[in-house]
Design a protein around this nucleic acid. Structure first.
Length: 308
DNA sequence: AATTGACCCAACCGCCAGTTG
DNA sequence: GCAACTGGCGGTTGGGTCAAT
């Protein structure tokens, strides 16, 4: 009975096994690849003495047996990266995995579906669009909702600029549809996980202000603490001003693979990503995004899917 | 102690794109 | 140009585990 359960298709009159891999099968696959490399996956099973289809062998290797795979729980930094990249590329798990060393797309996908998606819903954010599900947000305060609206504006501007920059590299591509407004999820995420309040990232006033100049990694800078009356604070200036009232000193780093501002004092002041800053259209920003997109392992195919 | 339900994750399936003959 | 083959990817499933009742 149990054998029939995992009996798969036949190939050359050999019944292919399905279901969980035994330690012996793992050993056979490992030792074969160690000696010969995987070569053609289609012919590997017979050469390695496995009654599996090549596809099953490939999946077992790429998702489990590969030596460069880190297993275990995702840390907060990895979760941050997943959320930011998901906001940018959607369910392109392989592209996201390319940015997370030693993690597989399958693992990230599972983690997203079982943990991150639920947490986002709990935060009142749609895990697909990264938009608030409705007005019953995780933040009960009206001012927090106002902040989220600012976030959406800002993220929208960022996506537009990003699309322009990418198009500049792929001029043959047709103009993209306007990107959907999207939140700075990392920011909301960190506020959620640290118990902080949503008070970050957006310039004051109801209109979207010009994004800040683009800082160099490691550059020390200051962030003006602007209050729009609704409590929203924003990155206003890469300042050479003296740190004074309402100016938060901090540093830009790229430890997550994208620019990110961290205040010098931990405070509840300005924390979170630096995505807004790259909306500035200048050569520095363009160069950054050029390399960044490479890092995320975009292929031409991905880009065309994004903008066609 | 037994049952139930939620959670986790390995593995499968189907689709698509690229390559080859 | 076309069909067959191959590899890669994302969606889904189902079995194991564990906590709650």
């Amino acid at each position: 009975m149990e054998n029939e359960r995992y009996e798969g298709r036949r190939c050359n009159n050999v019944v292919l096994k399905k279901g969980p891999w035994s330690p012996l099968e793992d050993q056979k696959l490992l030792s074969y690849i160690h000696l010969h490399g995987h070569g053609s996956w289609a012919s590997l099973p017979s050469k390695a003495g496995l009654k599996r289809c090549g596809k099953s062998c490939r999946l077992r290797w790429t998702n489990y047996l590969r030596p460069d795979i880190k297993r275990g729980k995702f840390n907060l930094q990895e979760e941050d990266t997943i959320i930011q990249l998901h906001a940018l590329v959607g369910n392109r798990w392989s592209a996201i995995a390319a940015h997370l060393p030693k993690r597989t797309g399958n693992e990230i996908k599972n983690h997203w579906n079982t943990n991150l998606k639920k947490k986002m819903i709990k935060m009142g954010l749609d895990p697909v669009t990264h938009m608030p599900i409705n007005h019953r947000l995780g933040c009960a305060q009206p001012k927090d909702f106002a902040n989220l609206c600012h976030m959406a504006q800002w993220e929208s501007a960022r996506l537009e600029a990003e699309a322009r920059l990418v198009r500049r590299q792929f001029t043959a591509l047709p103009p993209p549809p306007p990107p959907p407004p999207c939140f700075d999820v990392l920011n909301a995420w960190e506020c959620e996980t640290t118990g902080g309040t949503l008070n970050c990232f957006f310039a004051g006033g109801s209109s979207l202000q010009s994004p800040a100049p683009f800082p160099a990694f490691g550059e020390e800078l200051a962030v003006e603490d602007v209050d729009d009356g609704g409590g929203a604070k924003g990155i206003m200036d890469i300042s050479e001003e003296l740190y004074g009232d309402g100016v938060t000193p901090g540093v830009v780093d790229d430890s997550l693979g994208f620019p990110r501002f961290t205040p010098a004092d931990d405070g509840n002041a300005v924390v979170g990503g630096w995505w807004g800053s790259v909306a500035r259209e200048d050569d520095v920003a363009a160069d950054y995004w050029g390399s960044s997109l490479d890092d995320v392992a975009f292929s031409n195919r991905d880009l065309r899917k994004l903008f066609c």
